[in-house]
Simulated scan of single mutants.
Amino acid sequence: MYLADRTWPELGARLSEESVAVVPLGSTEQHGPHLPLATDHLIAEALASAAAEEADVIRTPTIQVGVSPHHRQFPGTMWVDPPEFREYVEAFTRNLAYHGIDRVVYVNAHGGNVQHLREVGRRLHRDGTTYALEWMWDESIPELVDELFEHNGPHAGPKETAMITHIAPELVREDQLENARDDGLVHLGDSDAFVHGARTFYDSVDNSANGAFGDPTDVTPEKAERLFEAATDQLVQLVEWLEARDREELLPKERVESSPY
């Protein structure tokens, strides 16, 4: 159920009975010459919508701008700084807790958000407000991603191209797929991204002139559908696992008073 489509009387009883909400988060940032800036938040919203319908839980509005300063050199990229992002997501989640939601899954599709969502979850857990988990879609199906694509790429590569091919194929610039591959970076090992164990780059443009990584030409509608369905299934299973937990099980544990030995 999408929260924002309902009236408050329709939501009143439902929210008091509901325990889990899914919150889609992404970014508005460059995704090479072939994918829209909306890529990440479109993926998060589509997965959250599909899982919320199947698991019969609440889906909130999508948080569309994330922590993306490392893509700032590309026109149109938007970002918020980490402290402001964390404060906003925390306040957003406390709103849900006020209305009776005590478990939240952050359905995330942007790597730059990960550590900040985990920190917000830690804060909310520490004071017992709610139990919030960060879920990154491609981290839920790494074996399948590796099976489907020889050159994945961490950003604007085949896995994200496949997801947009499935969700909104009209937004994929198919005439730019080869340019994305040839003018981007297919093999991260071909760059000086890591030298003697040190990560040498701060911005995406340091490694890829057009912002794309991997080989997005290695995508078919069949692969795209398989990827989307597998990620959705993992999210549904996570929501069901969370629903089955007792609240006491999720609250912070008491201080250990004595050694068990």
Rank of each mutant, 00 (worst) to 15 (best):
T7D: 10
W8P: 13
A13S: 12
E18H: 05
S19E: 12
V20M: 01
V22P: 01
L25S: 03
L25V: 06
G26H: 01
G26V: 04
H31R: 10
H31P: 14
P33V: 03
P36M: 11
P36N: 11
L37R: 03
H41W: 15
L42F: 12
I43F: 03
E45K: 04
A46C: 09
L47G: 02
A50N: 15
E54F: 05
A55R: 07
D56C: 14
I58L: 15
R59G: 15
V65T: 10
G66Q: 00
H70W: 03
Q73P: 01
Q73H: 08
F74S: 08
P75H: 01
W79T: 01
P82R: 03
F85K: 02
A91H: 09
R94T: 09
R94K: 09
L96W: 11
Y98N: 10
I101W: 01
D102A: 05
V104L: 11
A109M: 01
G112L: 02
G112A: 06
H116T: 06
G128Q: 02
Y131R: 09
L133A: 00
E134T: 00
E134Y: 00
W135V: 10
I141N: 07
P142V: 11
E147D: 12
E150H: 05
N152C: 12
P154V: 07
A156N: 06
G157D: 02
G157K: 00
P158H: 08
K159F: 08
K159T: 06
E160K: 05
T161D: 04
A162E: 03
I164F: 15
T165F: 13
H166F: 12
I167W: 15
E170N: 04
L171K: 14
V172E: 06
R173T: 11
Q176P: 08
L177S: 07
E178F: 11
N179V: 13
D182I: 05
G184I: 07
H187I: 13
G189H: 11
D190V: 06
D192G: 15
A193T: 13
A193N: 07
H196K: 14
H196V: 12
G197I: 15
T200H: 13
Y202C: 08
D203F: 09
D206T: 12
N210T: 02
G214V: 13
G214S: 11
P216C: 03
V219C: 01
R226N: 06
R226L: 04
A231N: 09
T232C: 08
L238C: 06
L238S: 05
V239N: 00
W241M: 08
L242W: 03
A244G: 09
R245D: 01
R247Q: 14
R247G: 10
E248N: 05
E249S: 03
E249A: 03
K253F: 11
R255W: 12
S259I: 11
